[in-house]
């Protein structure tokens, strides 16, 4: 399955790859059965780019992110695949080295900024902690640097706000603190897992601006996880669409919006309301996401797929398609575009 040709989502003359994920599988062993939350995900992120990971709730976006950082807790377990970050194979790294890497070369921010901050420590302490850990700074030096970082993420009175506790902050402020922590050591990759979902719309734009500015300034690549296609359109360079634990389409953002290929992506695009267009009902994708314990054989989207019925494709419900290139840098896993022997 995993042939070198699969790396062809790298366009020509592209910058170096910072992260390469191949065949990643993370399963959760629950009492009801094995939940295949991430079931064979391939993608790579280039140095300094903003890479989008989009899909509906429960499709495995967050688990993918946590698997890359090896933060999946029991009963979850990454059972297969490789994650290569800056030449290092993360899934084989000793835990000590992984601790050194987390928060310094690769970091993550989460959807719930307030609950992601420890309620009993001041925010200044929490920014300083990451500096003490990775830069070996003393308490006072780390504090000074933490105040400086808080200033850079947009606190006008950073010096006094550093003493504040998380419960004294708004969601937007807390997310700024999380960004300060995540970017404190200028990592080469930041994973932003739905960073604005829990925030007010007006604050969302500010946080996204801040993320974009800082990542550009410090040449940090960003994996932006979201279910919001608007955010994708505005922020990212390339995007992968996930469905039921797999990537179904991967392309640069312009092409994805202009010519979506996979029926699921097409369905997503059609379900967005368009300004000025009057519709009684938005288009919806019929059916619902399959149970990740008892996945249907063949393509996971097949039971909901209209083009499959229209084209009378039988293979879709029997064999799972691979993610194959359709054009330079545009991949999709769909039998509509792939050669197959009809069974």
């Amino acid at each position: 399955m995993d042939t070198p040709a699969r790396l062809s989502d790298e366009g020509e003359g592209a910058p170096r790859t910072i992260l390469d994920v191949r065949g990643l599988k993370t399963y959760f062993y629950t009492d009801d059965g094995v939940v295949k939350a991430v079931d064979g995900v391939d993608f790579s992120v280039r140095e300094g780019e903003v890479f989008g990971l989009v899909g509906e709730s429960g499709c495995g976006k967050s688990v993918t992110a946590l698997s890359i950082l090896r933060l999946v807790d029991s009963p979850g377990e990454t059972v297969d695949g490789t994650v290569t970050f800056d030449g290092e194979s993360l899934l084989e790294l000793p835990e000590d080295d992984m601790n050194k890497l987390r928060g310094s070369r690769m970091s993550i921010i989460f959807q719930q900024p307030i609950s992601s901050l420890n309620p009993v420590f001041s925010v200044g302490d929490q920014v300083a902690e990451v500096l003490q850990l990775h830069e070996g700074l003393g308490k006072d030096e780390a504090w000074i640097k933490a105040v400086d970082l808080l200033d850079q993420v947009g606190f006008p009175d950073a010096e006094s706000r550093a003493n504040a506790f998380p419960h004294e902050m708004s969601g937007g402020q807390a997310q700024r603190v999380m960004i300060a922590i995540a970017l404190a050591l200028k990592p080469s990759l930041l994973i932003a897992d739905e960073p604005t979902t829990a925030l007010d719309v007006t604050i969302q734009a500010q946080i996204l601006d801040l993320l974009r500015d800082l990542s550009r300034r410090w040449k940090t690549a960003v994996i932006l996880i979201t279910h919001d296609l608007g955010v994708i359109a505005e922020m990212v360079d390339r995007v992968a669409v996930m469905y039921a634990g797999r990537i179904v389409e991967l392309s640069n953002v312009r092409e994805l919006f202009k010519t979506p290929k996979h029926p699921y992506t097409v369905g997503l695009m059609e379900s967005i309301p368009v300004l000025g267009q009057v519709k009684d009902r938005l288009n919806v994708i019929p059916g619902s996401v399959p149970n990740l314990i008892n996945l249907p054989p063949g393509c996971r989207f097949a039971p909901r797929c209209r083009p499959r019925v229209e084209n009378g494709l039988e293979i879709c419900i029997q064999v799972e398609p691979d993610l194959e290139p359709l054009a330079a840098g545009h991949l999709a896993s769909c039998w509509l575009y792939q050669d197959h022997d009809e069974v």
Binding site: N99, G103, S107, S116
Partner: peptide
Amino acid sequence: QDYMRAARAKGVPKRKVYFRHGARN
């Protein structure tokens, strides 16, 4: 709690997460 995972994401070793971030709460 979310902050326990967030602390691990900062690179705090697991035992320190329990005793510094967890026990205090």
